[in-house]
Simulated assay, not measured.
Amino acid sequence: MLRDDLRTLWTEPRPPDAPARVRRDWVLLAAGLAGVALEATLREDVVWRPVAVLFAVWLCVLPLWRRTRPLATVTLAFGSVILLQAASLVAAPSEPVGLNTGAIVLVLVYALPRWGSGREIVLGGAMTLAAFSLCAVTDDVPAAEQVVGLVFLLLPGAIGAAVRFWLTARERQLEQVRSREREQLARELHDTVAHHVSAMVIISQAGRVLAATDPSAAVEALEGVEEEGARTLEEMRAMVAALRDRGVGAELSPPAGVADLERLVRTPGGRLRVDLGIDGELDALPPAVDAAVYRIVQESVT
Rank of each mutant, 00 (worst) to 15 (best):
V61K: 05
R21I: 07
A212L: 09
R114G: 11
R14K: 15
L64D: 02
D17Q: 05
D139G: 00
I121E: 14
V27K: 01
F55P: 03
L282V: 15
V97T: 14
T75M: 03
D191Q: 09
Y294N: 00
D283A: 10
E12I: 07
L252T: 03
E227V: 11
V22E: 10
G277K: 13
L210C: 11
H190M: 12
A126F: 09
Q184C: 04
Q85H: 11
V22D: 10
D140I: 09
A103R: 00
L154M: 10
V51Q: 06
R119N: 02
D279Y: 03
V51G: 14
I296T: 09
G270M: 00
R271V: 03
V46N: 01
V47H: 12
G269V: 08
A221K: 07
R49V: 05
R237N: 12
A144R: 14
E39F: 06
A31L: 15
S117M: 08
L54E: 02
A212K: 15
L99N: 03
G270P: 04
V177K: 02
A72K: 00
R244T: 13
P50M: 08
A103K: 04
L272I: 02
T192F: 07
G160V: 07
E262N: 11
A20I: 08
V107H: 07
R170W: 14
I202C: 04
V22P: 00
V47T: 01
G79A: 06
L134M: 12
V219G: 14
D279K: 12
G229Y: 15
S198K: 05
D17S: 14
V193H: 00
D283R: 01
G229V: 02
Q146K: 02
A161D: 02
R67G: 12
A288L: 01
V209E: 14
T128E: 03
V137L: 11
D140M: 10
W166D: 10
S198W: 04
E183C: 00
G229F: 05
S80H: 07
L243I: 02
A291P: 01
G79Q: 10
R21G: 02
Q298M: 13
P287H: 12
L99S: 12
D5S: 15
E220R: 15
V109S: 01
S117D: 07
N100S: 06
L33V: 14
L282R: 01
L89D: 02
V105C: 11
L155W: 15
T168W: 12
D260I: 06
A40Y: 02
D139T: 05
V97N: 03
E95Y: 13
L264C: 04
P254G: 07
R231L: 05
V90L: 06
P93C: 04
T128A: 12
A86D: 04
